[in-house]
């Protein structure tokens, strides 16, 4: 089974999965996120086009207002 790691948890990988589809699958509706694939920052303009490679380590960090 092909997998990816998202915030430390193993998930199934699908052919053609983008950052946007992953966020949708995980019900991440928070407007402000930082996304990294294998340590590389993915800017929010790139969510729709960025394909997640099989075996990737994905970090999704939620940013909250306040300070």
């Amino acid at each position: 089974m092909n997998t990816i790691i998202v915030n430390g948890n193993t998930m199934d990988w699908e052919d053609g999965i983008t950052v946007r589809t992953l966020l949708g699958k995980m019900n991440y509706s928070f407007p402000m996120l930082i996304v990294k694939i294998n340590g590389t920052l993915i800017r929010k303009e790139e969510y729709d086009l960025t394909l997640i490679p099989v075996g990737a380590n994905v970090a999704i960090i939620h940013l909250i207002s306040g300070g």
Binding site: L41, R43, L63, I64, S65
Partner: peptide
């Protein structure tokens, strides 16, 4: 980063990490 609003935090983090990884 010492901003208040989340969208500003995101802007700063993305811009800084793109320029000065």
């Amino acid at each position: 980063e010492a901003f208040d609003l989340a969208d500003q935090k995101q802007m700063l983090i993305e811009a800084w990490q793109s320029r000065y990884p």
